[in-house]
Computed example of a mutant assay.
Amino acid sequence: MKTKIIQISAGKGPLECAFVVAKVLKIFLKELTNNKIDYTILHKENGIENGTVQSVSIQIEGKNLADFTANWLGTIQWIGTSTFRKFHKRKNWFIGCFEVESSKLLEINENEIQFQAIRSSGAGGQHVNKVSSAIRAKHISTGIQVLVMDSRSQHQNKKIAIQRLQQKVAEFNSEQQKEQFKNQWENHQEIERGNPIRVFKGSDFKQINKEKSFKNKRNQLKKDLRKQIE
């Protein structure tokens, strides 16, 4: 199974664009489900109004991802009246759909952990203080460390230390990804307004078939050519 990370963003667009992102996100997730593609929302930055989304990053996993994303990556247009500014004259709103390069996630191998046995402190009397049962574990590449003294067994504390390091490194990966998505969003501030990959219209977000649009353009070109010949 292949994986991709897709970001849908309003860029520097106004509140209406964040509204469009929220609506398009629902359509995008529905199509993923219909195509039997698994997804996980990695990060979502809500807009300033309820029901709006400034940016969202989704990890997708499945077959034929390239074919699926080919129908989504690029500029997405919505033709409709603003729900926030009903008398606003603008009718065309644009958002962007991008593929994000995923940074390599850190994984913990035991040979990358530095262990140190130290004396336990706290309740337990003199016996606890004499036995070096507590474990300090440090993940060398990140510097993340934990101190475990849950058990009087050094072996058990070592197992717990590895589990807690794994949890902390997972949190570290999550924060790194969030920062990456934020940077990607900043890189995608400028949304191209022309040549949309998809066009939706109206409050029900009905998709406009681009082939029909191209057909209309061809017919118009034929009419213009006939006028020139005449």
Rank of each mutant, 00 (worst) to 15 (best):
D204Y: 12
L73G: 04
Q189F: 13
Q167A: 14
N35P: 09
E107S: 14
N209H: 12
G13I: 03
K168N: 08
Q145M: 05
E179V: 05
T3H: 11
Q220P: 01
I135N: 00
G143P: 01
Q228P: 00
L42R: 01
N35F: 08
V199S: 09
R119D: 04
R193H: 15
E112T: 02
L221K: 15
I160L: 04
R218K: 12
E112H: 05
G13N: 08
I48Y: 04
I135E: 07
I8P: 05
I140V: 03
Q7Y: 07
L15G: 01
G13D: 06
Q207E: 15
D67R: 06
I108T: 12
A137C: 00
S203M: 13
N157S: 02
Q114L: 04
F68I: 07
S151V: 01
K89A: 00
V56S: 07
Q114E: 08
S57V: 07
F28I: 03
S55Y: 05
Q167W: 09
R218D: 12
L29C: 13
I76N: 10
Y39L: 02
C17V: 04
V146P: 06
N129W: 02
G143T: 00
H155M: 04
L73Y: 08
K91I: 11
T83F: 06
K2H: 10
S82Y: 10
G143M: 02
L105N: 13
S174T: 12
K168R: 15
N34W: 09
S120W: 01
K182D: 02
K159V: 07
I95C: 09
C97E: 02
H139R: 07
N216T: 13
K104R: 12
Q7F: 02
W72E: 10
K23C: 14
N34H: 10
W72G: 08
R226N: 11
Q180V: 03
F84D: 07
Q116P: 04
E61I: 13
N195K: 08
E31G: 10
N109G: 05
E190V: 12
F68K: 05
W185M: 05
I58H: 03
I37M: 12
G47E: 01
I27F: 02
R164N: 09
F28A: 00
E61H: 07
F19N: 05
Q54N: 13
N64R: 13
H155S: 04
N187F: 08
E211S: 09
A18T: 08
Q77Y: 01
S82G: 12
E110P: 03
Q176V: 10
V100A: 10
K158V: 02
K12R: 11
T75S: 13
I60V: 14
N111K: 14
T81W: 01
R85T: 10
K12V: 00
K217V: 12
N71G: 15
S151H: 07
F200C: 05
D67M: 04
S121M: 00
S57N: 06
I37Q: 15
Q154K: 12
M149V: 01
K130S: 03
S213I: 15
I135C: 00
K159C: 00
K158D: 04
L32S: 15
I58E: 03
